[in-house]
Design a binder for these strands. Structure first.
Length: 478
RNA sequence: GGCUCGGUAGCAAAGUGGUCAUGCAACGGUUUGCAAAGCCGUUCACGCUGGUUCGACUCCAGCCCGAGCCUCCA
């Protein structure tokens, strides 16, 4: 039984797919005006993890994650770059896919782009007007009439009066109520526009997700996710739109991931604490380190991004890979478990408790180490290795060849390392092997001074040696 | 002001009414030519104040501190 915290009720509830055995989930993807930042990465990794786990449990999953490709920021950036908006968007969609592949995020079943769903949005807006939930304002914009939708505010726990009391909402005479939001923006010179019954224009942001999710998943599906900041107003508005137009039930469970903060503050450009995923990936040993970090705390809580925490994640992940080193990939049956699989499932079934699931992996690594020390590559060791690799795979890591992972290092320019240590001179694998061969000769001659000198050189280059029985020296990069 | 969510050992981070999280770091042991890695062991906790209880970090109340949302935002 999989229990998930539902933002709509504030409680955990059992996942019971509307269509038995088939989970349909939607998450609000990103707006492709730039490379996405590590906060976006958290949301993308979290919902990838959710979809992976549900699949792992044997459920059929249809995961839809949209791409917002029509938006003020895109239009502005495109203008600055002197290209058409869709050209700008296409560039960052390609970049997004590159970064997502590195992060180990599987492609969702569908990745609808807002600009391909204009017809569906117009149909929905028309239906909202018919149903009395929307009106065209004097300036030509079509607005949602918040008053007409009684449950408005349920998701975010807000009341219309309270929202107004907050009153940071700017006065807009085109609106009947300050909280009314735009469904269709009338065209402005130089902006993309599509014809509509209310004049040429482009869609408001909120209607995009209502149109795409219902078109792809129907009016009643299982999970709708996104970042905590989308809870209000975006998701609130989506509910108002979809339910207003279809009178359907829309999403059963709403999931929201917490923020990724920098120095305990939300990332923002004004504070200058803004990191793109791309630049972070360039600084770390392996992309899985970032994924591991993002899953090392529970998805709903806030988490803090810092180089030292990335280093801790690297160390923890390295420990897992060390346990798997020189263990070939056995095709063993994951489900004939040592018990860890059950513990892992119990953790994940409880609202996707990835930190606890990772603790299970660490326990498995310890058992594997102990077993290998005692009995070498025994049947049990193979079982443990297979299980560790398999369960890690459910979370989307431990997919790399251990030797390759351990010998990888941050790409050039990044060895300034999190702690500000000076950049280290790099050595190719072949150079390292040559040095080790030379050291082995020195060791055979019991020339410890020379042996240690060579090791010091390698250490300075970020290479750690491990002498094994039988004159074998394993190595890895730190 | 309204509405949320947090405060766990040096750093991160789970969890529970009554022996254990887990990882990193530190210390000791084992091992090693010396290391590294592994294993074993040790140190270091549950914001404050009351209450309930045989017993609370875990439940309740109050308080303090921090963050977020109420405006585009993962």
């Amino acid at each position: 039984m999989i229990r998930i915290h539902n933002s709509l009720t504030g409680e955990k509830q059992e996942l019971k797919p509307v269509e038995p055995g088939h989970v349909r989930m939607y998450s609000c993807g990103i707006t492709v005006y730039d490379y996405f930042h590590v906060g976006n990465a958290r949301m993308l990794v979290v919902f990838d993890m959710v979809s992976r786990y549900l699949r792992h449990r044997g459920l059929r999953v249809t995961y839809v994650r949209n791409i917002t490709d029509v938006d003020d920021k895109i239009i502005n950036r495109a203008r600055e770059s002197g290209v058409e908006w869709h050209v700008h968007a296409a560039k960052y969609i390609a970049a997004m896919h590159e970064d997502l592949d590195k992060l180990g995020c599987m492609r969702p079943e569908r990745e609808p782009k807002a600009s391909d769903y204009i017809a569906e949005m117009l149909a929905m807006i028309g239906q909202l007007i018919t149903n009395g939930y929307a009106y065209q304002a004097p300036n030509g914009d079509v607005m949602y009439d918040v008053h007409k939708f009684a449950p408005y505010g349920k998701l975010s726990g807000k009341k219309l009066d309270d929202l107004r009391a907050g009153s940071r909402v700017e006065v807009d005479t085109a609106k009947r109520d300050p909280l009314d939001f735009v469904l269709w923006k009338s065209a402005k010179p130089g902006e993309p526009a599509w014809p509509s019954p209310w004049g040429a224009g482009r869609p408001g942001w909120h209607i995009e997700c209502s149109a795409m999710s219902t078109k792809e998943l129907g009016e009643h599906f299982d999970i709708h996710g996104g970042g905590l900041d989308l809870k209000f107003p975006h998701h609130e508005n989506e509910i108002a739109q979809t339910c207003g137009a279809t009178h359907g039930r829309f999403a059963e469970i709403w999931m929201h991931n917490g923020f990724l903060n920098i120095d305990n503050e939300k990332m923002s450009k004004s504070l200058g604490n803004f990191f793109t995923t791309r630049e972070v990936l360039a600084k770390i040993k392996h992309p899985e380190v970032l994924r591991f970090f993002l899953l090392s705390s529970h998805y709903r809580g806030p988490m803090n991004y810092s180089p030292s925490q990335l280093e801790q994640s690297e160390a923890a992940l390295t420990r897992l890979y060390m346990a798997l080193r020189d263990m070939p990939s056995y095709g063993g049956d994951l489900y004939t478990s040592t018990g860890a699989t059950g513990e892992f499932a119990a953790a994940m079934n409880d609202d996707f408790n990835t930190p606890e699931a990772i603790a299970v992996l660490q326990g498995l690594a310890r058992e594997l180490n102990t077993e290998r020390t005692a009995n070498g590559e025994s049947a049990r060791a193979k079982q443990l290795a297979s299980e560790l690799r398999g369960l890690g795979g459910v979370l989307g890591f431990l997919g790399e060849d251990p030797g390759k992972f351990l010998r990888s290092s941050a790409s050039a320019g990044a060895s300034e390392a999190a702690d500000g240590a000076p950049k280290l001179p790099g050595l190719s694998d072949a150079e390292v092997d040559a040095q080790i061969a030379a050291r082995l000769d020195a060791r055979k001659a019991k020339n410890w001074a020379e042996s240690d000198r060579i090791r010091d050189v390698l250490t300075a280059a970020g290479v750690i040696l491990e002498d094994k029985p039988g004159g074998i020296t394993a190595w890895r990069r730190r």
